[in-house]
Each structure stands twice: as C-alpha cells, then as structure tokens.
Simulated scan of single mutants.
Amino acid sequence: MSVVDMVVVGGGQAGLATAGVASARGLSAVVLDASPGPGGSWPRYYDSLTLFSPARFSSLPGLPFPGDPDRYPVRDEVVAYLGAYADRVDADVRWGRRVERVARVGDGFAVAATDGTLLRARTVVAASGGFGRPYRPELPGLETFTGRVLHSADYREPSPLRGARVVVVGGGNSAVQIGVELARVARVSLAARGRLRWQAQRILGRDFHWWLTRTGLDFSRLGPRLVKGTVPVIDDGGYRAAVRAGQPDHRPMFTRLDGDSVVWADGARERVDLLILATGFRPDLAYLAGTSAVDGQGRPLHVRGVSTAVPGLGYVGLEHQRSFASATLRGVGRDAGYVLGNLLR
C-alpha cells in the first residue's frame, strides 16, 4: 500500500486547485478522479454553457486563463484550460480511479478506488463536487409522471426537442439559460416557486464580478448570508428580455403532475412532452458514508471546509463553503489555501 501526504478525491477545478496549492507547499498529493481525462464535470455540461465571470476572474492558482481577459469563456475553453492545468501541476493525477471508500485508520486514512488502488494518506481533501448527485425535488406526481424527465445534468442541446412542449423547473441561472435556448425551437415554460431575481452582468461599464472583488464581497463570509430565496440570474439583458417576451414564459410552480400532464396553479391541465429539472446538485460524498463525516442526508459536517467530525479531512468546492465564489473557478484556489492551512497545522 502506497503512503502519501495527501489524497485529493476529484480532479476537476476544486481538486486541481487543491493539488496546485499542495505542491506549492512541498506536499506529495495524489489526485484520484473517476473521469477518463481532465475537465471534471465540464465536458458533460450542456453545449452552450458560458462562464458568467470573465476570464480574468476564472483562473486557478499559478495559471492565468489564456486569451482576452474580459471575454466570457465557453465550456470547451474551460475543459482545455483544466487539461493544461492538470499537465502543469506538480502532482500525481490519476484518471479513471473512482474512489469507493475513505476510512480513518490510525492517525491517517485508507483510500480505496474501484480499480484496486489503495493508498494511505495523512490528510484527505474531498473535492468531488456534486455533478454525480443531481437533486430531484419531491414534486407531487413526479414518480408516476409518464412524460419524459431529464435533470439539467443530462441536457446537451435543443435540436432533438424541436416542436416539443417543455417545462423547466427552477429559477436559477441554468434554468433560465436552458429555457431561453430551448424556447427558440420549442414551447417552453419556466416553473419556479418564487419570482426570478435578476443581476445585471455589467454595472457602470464593469463586470459584476469586478464589483464583487473590489468590495471584498466575493470572498466574504457575509456574502452567502445576503442571498435569500433563489440565486440571482446573471443577465446581459438578453435573458430578461426573452422571458418578458414569453420565450420562455415564467409561471408559478404547478401544483402536481398527473399522468403525462402538469396541473397549473389556476387548475388548468396541460400535456407536457418533457420535464427538465434545473434543480441543482448535492455534494457527491458516498465514499465517506462509513465515517462520521456526513449527516444522515449525506451533507458534510464542516466549518468553512474543515471537517468538524473527522480530523485531517477537508473539503474544497462546496457551494457557499466560505463565500459566493466557493464552487467556482475563481474561488476554489483561495478556499484550498485556507483548508490546507488548517489541516496541516
């Protein structure tokens, strides 16, 4: 059994940032990732996905995002950037290694992967994100709905849905992006429990993230506390205009699903071809199930990314872990520095 300083579970943006910080501190880190190659969950996102933050705010530690710093990179550019970072980082990054178990052994950990890899480590950082655990809310009638159901994790592009009747459940960025794109070829409604909240992408000529960084709110613990209800939709003006024009239309959440139909709040019943659940993700931490690290719902017990239940265990890439930016390219490096600084005291 090999012995290393640190095992990082996950080789996406959070895991690579953690490996970059670890190598800068002289640690031997092994990164285990279930994917066949670099990019984390990015290669599996929908084709048109574009970053909400400019390239200048979308870098991992030690490697600026290439090209025009004021542009908004698309999905495949992020995949290429993560591949370049994986080649550059001084760590042992192993693809195709799905971690199935992390166990506390003595003053360290035993980490087992499905390919037979078995490692001992002094510290473990869980950086596996949530893409492997899409959240499906308990909607009345969902389990017996006879129409087609997709989570946003399974959506790629609109052409197969031309002419279909589609309801997108959710009111965040992904729901609006997918809904507006699909409305060009299909009849689409956005169904959400509350109103849509809009955030202008540019304010007084500056990108929203410039203001977040300049004010310190982007990396402040106060930031997540100021967000109540649905996450604001970052908008360049096009999304709000499309929704106002009814492409897609925005409706209150339906009361139930019945057979192949939705029943709207006003009692109207309508047949639907496809339901898309743009309802987010939950931390994908099944490999910690044998420890005390997570609660009964699989949620990590931590303070700012440092486990409160298992010494030597940390997290990077959790939503609102320390700030607005924690689950983003611009935030994972800073969080990795904080977590490793605490784990290695």
Rank of each mutant, 00 (worst) to 15 (best):
Gln13Pro: 02
Pro311Glu: 04
Ala175Cys: 07
Tyr338Pro: 00
Val125Phe: 00
Ala126Leu: 09
Ala265Gln: 11
Ser220Arg: 04
Tyr72Ser: 12
Pro283Asp: 07
Gly15Pro: 06
Glu77Ala: 15
Ala113Thr: 10
Val306Gln: 08
Ala309Cys: 15
Val227Lys: 10
Thr213Asp: 14
Arg165Ile: 08
Asp258His: 05
Thr213Arg: 12
Ala278Phe: 12
Ser152Gly: 14
Val306Tyr: 01
Leu340Thr: 03
Trp95Pro: 08
Leu32His: 09
Gly290Tyr: 00
Thr144Ile: 08
Ala293His: 07
Thr291Ile: 00
Gly40His: 08
Gln199Trp: 06
Arg240His: 05
Arg104Asp: 02
Arg187Asn: 11
Arg221Lys: 13
Tyr315Phe: 15
Arg156Thr: 10
Tyr72Gln: 12
Leu222His: 10
Arg75Glu: 15
Arg244Ser: 10
Tyr46Leu: 11
Pro252Cys: 01
Gly11Asn: 06
Ala325Thr: 09
Ala186Glu: 07
Ala34Ser: 14
Pro160Asn: 07
Leu16Asn: 09
Arg214Glu: 13
Ser23Tyr: 10
Asp92Asn: 13
Gly259Trp: 04
Ser41Asn: 02
Gly96Lys: 11
Val111Glu: 00
Arg244Gly: 15
Gly163Thr: 10
Arg251Met: 06
Asp87Arg: 14
His151Trp: 08
Asp68Val: 11
Asp76Asn: 15
Ala265His: 14
Arg71Leu: 13
Ala84Ser: 14
Thr215Arg: 07
Asp154Trp: 04
Asp260Val: 03
Ala183Trp: 12
Arg282Gly: 04
Gly20Cys: 03
Trp95Gln: 06
Leu32Gln: 08
Gly296Asp: 01
Arg184Cys: 07
Phe131Val: 01
Asp295Ala: 01
Ala22Phe: 01
Arg88Val: 01
Ala127Val: 10
Val168Leu: 14
Val262Tyr: 01
Ile276Ser: 09
Asp207Pro: 02
Ser128Gly: 09
Pro43Lys: 06
Asp90Asn: 09
Pro137Glu: 12
Arg256Gln: 12
Ala80Tyr: 14
Arg94Pro: 14
Ala14Glu: 04
Arg206Glu: 08
Tyr72Arg: 12
Ser23Lys: 04
Gly341Ser: 10
Ala164Ile: 02
Ala191Asn: 07
Arg282Lys: 10
Pro134Arg: 08
Tyr155Cys: 13
Ala55Pro: 00
Ser307Asn: 02
Arg282Phe: 05
Pro252Phe: 01
Pro38Ala: 11
Thr117Cys: 15
Val303Cys: 00
Glu143Asn: 11
Val272Gly: 09
Asp87Met: 07
Ala121Leu: 06
Val306Asn: 05
Arg136Asp: 08
Arg244Asn: 10
Thr144Cys: 03
Leu217Cys: 09
Arg156Met: 06
Leu49Trp: 04
Leu139Gln: 08
Asp87Cys: 12
